[in-house]
């Protein structure tokens, strides 16, 4: 049961870290890294040249549109809300490529944007919740959802399909919403 044990261990470790205040210690230890990020050439460009930040942010939003669109269509199909006439497996394979492209764009542009405002976001609790949601989303999408949907989906319990789709929608909605929240903080 390696995957089930991994889920239990990761959630147990996260719960223990919060209970034992380990997350606060980790947060304090990360301050020098965030201060250094602002001093890098990437951080300096993002900080001093507004147009560069705006252009990278535009690509970040396009990446989010790619990823969000792929998630909405794939999970909408799982819930039986759209594209039901298209075979699940084929649609899933096509959308996974779009999802991965969007994810890479988001990660690369996100690092650039984080360098420009590193110390500001370091003190924003919502930034850390977004990082948690992003990590959960990536692990869930690649280690659980993707291998599950490579099996015969039509023979799978409809409730399992619905629960997986709902969890996927919820986690990526949280990533997007907390991302916009950072922008307004």
């Amino acid at each position: 049961m390696p995957r089930t044990i991994m889920v239990l261990l990761l959630s147990g470790a996260a719960g223990f870290a919060v209970y034992a205040d380990l997350h606060l210690q980790a947060w304090q230890a990360l301050l020098p890294l965030f201060e250094w990020m602002e001093t890098t050439p990437v951080g300096a460009i993002g900080k001093t040249w507004g147009a560069a930040f705006a252009i990278i942010e535009a690509f970040h939003l396009l990446g989010l549109a790619l990823l969000g669109g792929a998630v909405l269509v794939a999970d909408g199909r799982l819930l039986g809300l759209c594209f039901v006439e298209i075979p699940q497996r084929w649609l899933e394979d096509q959308l996974h490529r779009v999802f991965m492209a969007g994810l890479w764009v988001l990660l690369i542009t996100g690092v650039f944007m984080a360098c420009a405002v590193a110390v500001k976001i370091y003190y924003l609790p919502v930034y850390w919740f977004k990082m948690l949601a992003l990590a959960v989303g990536i692990v869930f999408a690649l280690a659980i959802r993707r291998p599950l949907l490579q099996e015969n989906v039509e023979r799978m319990s409809p409730w399992l399909r619905r629960v997986v789709a709902l969890a996927s929608l919820m986690v990526w909605f949280t990533v997007a919403a907390t991302g916009r929240w950072i922008g307004f903080s």
């Binding site: 659980i144 959802r145 291998p147 599950l148 969890a167």
Partner: peptide
């Protein structure tokens, strides 16, 4: 294992978030 982990992780995500 895959189905059990999918149930478990989905439930944790839905409740937690």
């Amino acid at each position: 294992d895959l189905k059990l982990s999918a149930w478990l992780s989905s439930a944790i995500i839905i409740v937690g978030f």
